[in-house]
Nucleic acid binder design. Structure first.
Lengths: 335, 335
DNA sequence: TTGTATGCGTTATCAA
DNA sequence: TTGATAACGCATACAA
């Protein structure tokens, strides 16, 4: 079934059918009605390959999701999908491993599929610096800032990672904790981890609290299991900490489980803080105290920035969305 | 950059360049080498729209994921993506709401994108019965059986839902529980919910346990929050139950939180069982006793069935993957 | 082994 | 307002 068939069927020409199907003007009401009805009845769909070949660009928005493990990205995707659903620009999601190069992948997909724009869920500055110039489409880096990169087709929407970590540490300090350990991502491969680590150090200095970068910090991947192991490693060092800050909720939940298994109660023996504000954190026992990145905000602003670049040819800009500390049950004042 | 440019650049003709790029025989080693190198250097990518327009079919596998909320599907997607990555058939994921008609959506996407095959993550028999005949591509329904539908291009890979629910109830009964309540999905819209409900009833009858379909059952969506509310509703009825079975881990985790908030301890006061075997269940406090659907198995068999239909033109078949009961900490023998 | 020519389904330009 | 026609980039049948 092609528009040619539809033309033959309705007695109109190819051109008229195409115009009707694209909601263009200069078509008689009668033609519009007849053709639309015929299309409806036969369940006709334009062939997007032909359409896009002709138009030299696709119609979809591409989302490249780095590490499906990070549940924050899942929640972001839900929100993005919900906003985009029903609209003219379907979302295509491409998942890649934490270790793959998201920018190279994007370069390939852009050449191949010519999407209208690209959303990067997570990403590494180094990769962008090297390969991003090959991309022409408007892009938005989500959850990480691209301000320093200053490409004119790369916007970004992120939280202030330094501040987020600072807020977490400060909260623990305000509760009277002075012996605090930290679980975080690899500072080499994750921008977020690097910035949050900096936030921790600044907060410690600010509050005049000692922190041994070797003994009080443990590197972990962003998974429950890695968080679990990291907490175990910290326990084995016998640093007698009263509080633990994990750079992501997933790690924090893994850590709480490890503490429990080691006979420590949370929050009575150890206060635990997370960062992200995942839904699951509201249902754990105890509920997780965390610094919330507003998923709805991130999704909304990302799409708005992308839309603005695509439709209005606006130029790149970099937004920081506000974060909030949500004090729940996994932290308490030291006795 | 098109193969025309590449032809001009290397001095060969369009046809030769195309043959090289498609790894066809009847090309001299020299031509192959020169053209491949030129393509490499310029980072050339075939235009997939033109290619697919010509070939009359796409190259990708389409996954339609119903309800992103269900974390089991997320885990499945990770596993599927991992298996498919790097292969010749990229995965395109399309998320739709729990209430949308996945088959109509598939019909549209199949006409438009002509994928090689379709994976349905979740689905409703009714929808298939009505609209599936419009689809020509080989498809696999994952997590739900399509045996009764008997379309010759629709395979399925699923767990035995009736048995899974039976195993859960039996386990609780073996621990001495006789007052058991159940949280489940809507039996109208979810096949899994309907079958699991049947399993519950059979187990109750088998064990000669009374179960009031009105008072001991609560319908819930497959989310933490809905599980939470469902448990609250059950508590308010004062049925004095000692065990609760939730038809999904997500609901179970929500229910545990509600029980805690109501001052009930799990498992001391109430034993709770889930179903799915999500990763998060290993990290909750207490760890969740559950009936595990093997995600790796489901993913592996689904892709294999699809591959077999696509490449070897095999016919549809319906597999059941084994499930296992994993007894953890959220259930205990009644005192 | 290589080159040439045709058509895939659409959009867009131009003439009617 | 409509219809004819030329491209879009590629695969492929056929000719050389």
């Amino acid at each position: 079934m092609t528009i040619k068939d539809l033309a033959a069927q309705t007695g109109y020409s190819l051109g008229t059918v195409s115009r009707v199907l694209n909601h263009q003007p200069h078509v008689s009401e009668q033609a519009r009605e007849i053709i639309l009805r015929a299309a409806e009845e036969s369940g006709f769909q334009l062939n997007s390959n032909a359409k896009q070949l002709k138009q030299q660009h696709g119609t979809s928005i591409l989302a490249i999701c780095k590490s499906h493990q990070n549940e924050l990205f899942d929640e972001l995707l839900v929100s993005i999908q919900a906003r985009i659903a029903g609209g003219p620009h379907p979302l295509t999601v491409d998942y890649i491993d934490e270790n793959e190069n998201e920018v190279q992948r994007a370069v390939q997909l852009c050449r191949e599929k010519k999407p209208l724009g690209v959303l990067f869920l997570g990403g590494n500055q180094e990769n962008f610096r090297k390969d991003f110039p090959k991309i022409e489409q408007p892009c938005v880096l989500v959850t990480s800032s691209a301000a320093e990169l200053s490409f004119d087709n790369l916007s970004s929407v992120s939280s202030d990672d330094v501040l987020a970590a600072k807020m977490a540490i400060r909260h623990l300090v305000e509760l009277g904790h002075r012996k605090i350990v930290v679980i975080g991502g690899s500072r080499q491969t994750s921008d977020a981890a690097r910035l949050r680590y900096r936030g921790c150090l600044e907060a410690f200095r600010e509050c005049d609290i000692s922190f041994d970068e070797e003994l009080d910090y443990e590197t972990s991947r962003f998974t429950y299991l890695a968080g679990y192991h990291a907490a175990q490693a910290l326990l084995e060092r016998n640093r007698a900490f009263t509080a633990l800050f994990a750079m992501s909720d997933v790690m924090a939940i893994g850590a709480i489980r490890a503490l429990n298994d080691a006979g420590k109660r949370v929050p009575e023996d150890v206060s635990v803080m997370g960062l992200d504000g995942l839904t699951i954190g509201e249902y754990t026992v105890p509920r997780l105290t965390t610094v919330v990145q507003d998923v709805e905000d991130l999704a909304e602003r990302s799409l708005e920035l992308l839309r603005c670049c695509i439709e209005d040819r606006g130029s790149a800009c970099h937004e920081i969305v506000p974060i909030t500390l949500q004090s729940k049950e996994s932290t308490q004042r030291i006795r």
